[in-house]
Amino acid sequence: MKWYRLYIVTAWLSIGCSQKTLEKPQWLNATSSITIGQDSLYFIVPEANWSASISTPVQLIYPDLVQNEDELVVIIKPIGGIIEGMAFLTLESEENQFIYSFQLKNPQKVTQLTDLRTPKTLSTDSSLVQQQILYRFDDVGNLIPLAGESYFEEKYIELLPETGTFQSETGTPQSSFYVEAGTVVDIPLSYSLDGPNHQIRIQTGPLMDRFDNKIADGTHILFFFQRGDQRIKIESVTEDAFATLTVPREMVANSKLVASIAQVSSQTLNLLPND
């Protein structure tokens, strides 16, 4: 019964003897950083059939191999683009594996700067301080260092109290930011007679915020007329920092008039007091 053990040992030995241990290939142009499509890796290898693969955290790349006796060239062909970072080249032959590590990079491509602003819309009633974050990335999505080797820049910018649409550092339409007018500070109110038509033309404006910016078009303005027990409420909107209203004379003669926008009111105006 012990004869089968002999067979096992003999078989084991023969398998063991058939596996050849190869020397580790010598990387002639060893470097810490490889650029796809530009750099090739040169090795001195024992004569055997070799295969290669490059592993990145995201994908597996199979480079081309050119072998001439003991010289092996690993050519990494240009592909669409990779997520840059640590990569491992595995050279394999007859169950021998040899691993080499390096940083894998894309060749220099077009990059895009991103300028994020918060808040994107400011009012002149606020502090007008805006947070800016800058970063740059390539078309594959890799972050590219900014001018000073850092990947992000954060700034607090104090804007001028001037209303308008402003471009960011990238100049793209989407990244523009806006400064809007704040609350009106004063409501100048006046009226004039439109004699032939028996009408009164009431005008408010210019309606400006505390920094002399025109308030937004379409701002709701209420005109309150009071004559004894009768009250008249007319709603209107501003245009180009003015609001005008034309009413029949008999409707408002001898009335008191107040105009208000939100909680800001004008002085009381007496309309045609002797009428």
Partner: peptide, 14 residues
């Protein structure tokens, strides 16, 4: 609540 109150422009207040 907002500090300011709206002014309904009438006197006395409605």
């Amino acid at each position: 609540l907002l500090d300011q109150k709206p002014n309904d422009g009438f006197s006395p207040l409605e």
